[in-house]
């Protein structure tokens, strides 16, 4: 791949670009090697989100924001988003198109790869070589890395969450904004969200960007065994994440699951309580900066791979920690 611009599909939330999208922008800037980075946002943008977004894109050194608007883009549809992203590939003649490795990012990149007639590399963590382009990406749930060659005229890939930090560019930019109407067919809008049911809040996004995560596994004992763990989470202003055993047994909802088939987290501290540290769980929490394990078994993989550990029954230890925090706060 010769050096040329890179396009990035950016996902937004109430605070502008999501953390993982900013990570993808940093990855794109490094891949572009001095060539322009083009951001793509699809669908309506609230004024305050746009106000937050532009400085974030500027901090990442983005040259241009391509904002796709059209009737029918109000609701998410992967095919329509891909149509918009592929339009930008042509408009900006980029040599690589990428997104964060989120459910939407992977889905839209798969559609884009089909439209461009090229391969797609999911969950890339690093570019090992640029010409030819060779990437390392997560396979086997993040426990193995694959070196993969991308030889097509346009490289399509997603960037695994928390594979890198969203570092600011050496010289920030003031991105130019161009609105455009992507070429959409009726078929692009068939598989779109017809409604969103806002039930119990979905913590998976919060988990992905939380600074503190308290983990709970089978050691919690039962659905009633979470009171002290929830208190600890609240005292630390964190988010609760659980193992698959906990969701399979119906003790907590699936969106709280951390691991290969749950969320990937990268907090400053992760406090797994009563979690053995199976490879599939580890795949979701290995990016935590510090791990403090609480477990009855000093030989549990979670303990031996942690930075710190307390050995014993979480039902005695967690309340004692909560009491100590409250005591020090006075």
């Amino acid at each position: 791949m010769t050096a040329a611009g890179v396009g990035v599909l950016v996902e937004t939330d109430g605070h502008g670009a999501t953390l993982v999208s900013r990570e993808a922008l940093t990855f794109a800037r490094e891949l572009a090697g001095g060539q322009p980075v083009h951001a793509v946002v699809v669908g309506p943008l609230d004024a305050d989100v746009e106000d937050a977004l532009l400085p974030q894109l500027g901090e990442q050194g983005v040259a241009m924001l391509h904002h796709a608007t059209a009737d029918g883009l109000g609701a998410y549809s992967a095919a329509a988003w891909a149509a918009a992203a592929v339009d930008v590939v042509t408009r900006a003649s980029v040599r690589a198109l990428l997104a964060a490795g989120t459910p939407r990012g992977n889905e839209v990149m798969a559609h884009a790869a089909v439209r461009l007639g090229v391969a797609m590399a999911a969950n890339v963590v690093a570019a090992d070589g640029v010409d030819p382009l060779v990437v390392s990406r997560q396979v086997v749930g993040g426990t193995v890395l694959e070196e993969m060659r991308l030889d097509d005229a346009v490289a399509v890939l997603s960037v695994a969450g928390h594979a890198l930090d969203p570092a600011p560019a050496a010289s920030p930019t003031e991105p130019e904004v161009t609105a455009f109407t992507p070429t959409l067919s009726e078929a692009d809008l068939v598989a779109r969200v017809v409604r969103t049911e806002v039930g119990a809040p979905d913590e998976s996004a919060a988990l992905g960007s939380a600074r503190v995560v308290v983990g709970a596994g089978r050691g919690a004992g039962s659905a009633d065994g979470f009171k002290d763990l929830v208190s600890l989470t609240e005292l630390l202003g964190g988010v609760l994440g659980v193992s698959r055993v906990v969701t399979s047994l119906g003790w907590r909802p699936h969106h709280e699951q951390v691991g290969q088939t749950g969320s990937r987290i990268a907090p400053d501290i992760y406090i797994p309580c009563g979690i053995s540290g199976a490879i599939q769980h580890w795949a979701g929490c290995s990016s935590a900066k510090t791990i403090l394990a609480i477990n009855t078994d000093p030989e549990a993989p979670m303990v031996t791979r942690a930075h710190y550990a307390v050995i014993g029954d979480l039902h005695e230890i967690v309340p004692a920690i909560n009491d100590e925090i409250r005591r020090r706060r006075g």
Partner: peptide, 21 residues
């Protein structure tokens, strides 16, 4: 486009036990 698979390096255990109970 697979070139090869590789295992991430295993970190040796360096856990600091803060205490028991």
């Amino acid at each position: 486009g697979r070139v090869r698979w590789k295992l991430p390096p295993q970190q040796p255990s360096s856990v600091e036990i803060l205490g028991t109970g």
